[in-house]
């Protein structure tokens, strides 16, 4: 009987967020004042403002939250974070949610920020530092060959100007600058992943 009557109040998704999302323990501190939603320069362009996301978490809307593309629209301007009357680290929570959704494979497929972040980190870990040319090309061609050529043509002017200003090295396509101890960096990343996995296991 007790379980039945209290079941509605046992918000398992809020608990899940508290345990697994960076700074997730702050979500319950939100008082729904709306300052963050009104302060976000991107506000009008996303479906779920931080205020709304935090309420959805508390209302147990797991699928909707984790599949939302709102967290991926955050530009880290920190407007909400500095103005929140309850000092919630909103920007960090938004990134934490995005990361969690990504790990679970629920983040929206093809979401541009997610894609570029994925390409960026793959590139960075592989080379030990970012290879700008390869990263740019990968971004251009992420939606297929035809779209890639279109993108490249559209950005032609900027590309040529960067070449002229020696900000872009065409030979980087053959490898470009590498860092001294590439495998060392890869080991650091692998170790960090291992620690994170262990932490997640403990939280679960």
């Amino acid at each position: 009987m007790t379980t039945n009557t209290t079941a509605a109040y046992q918000n398992s998704f809020l608990r899940e967020v508290e345990a697994h999302v960076e700074e997730g323990a702050w979500v319950k501190m939100c008082m729904q004042c709306g300052v963050c939603a009104g302060s976000c320069p991107f506000g009008p362009h996303w479906e779920h403002s931080p205020q709304k996301i935090f309420m959805m978490i508390r209302a147990g809307k797991r699928e909707e939250v984790l599949r939302s593309d709102s967290m991926w629209m955050c530009t880290s301007c920190y407007n909400c974070l500095v103005r929140c009357p309850r000092k919630l680290p909103i920007t960090h929570i938004m990134h934490g949610l995005a990361h969690y959704a990504h790990r679970l494979g629920l983040a929206p497929k093809g979401q541009p920020t997610r894609e570029s972040a994925r390409l960026f980190w793959n590139n960075c870990i592989k080379h030990g530092r970012i290879n700008e040319l390869k990263f740019t090309l990968a971004l251009y061609f992420k939606d297929g060959l035809a779209q890639g050529i279109k993108n490249a043509l559209a950005m032609q002017g900027i590309g040529l100007a960067m070449l002229k200003a020696k900000r872009l090295n065409p030979f980087a396509i053959f490898g470009g600058h590498q860092c001294k101890d590439k495998s060392g960096i890869q080991k650091i990343v692998a170790k960090a992943r291992e620690l994170e996995a262990k932490r997640q296991e403990q939280a679960a």
Binding site: G34, V35, A37, G38, G43, P44, S49, Q51
Partner: peptide, 11 residues
């Protein structure tokens, strides 16, 4: 005045 209301999240 700019903001978002809490009863319906209207901007």
């Amino acid at each position: 005045l700019h903001g978002v209301d809490t009863e319906g999240y209207h901007r």
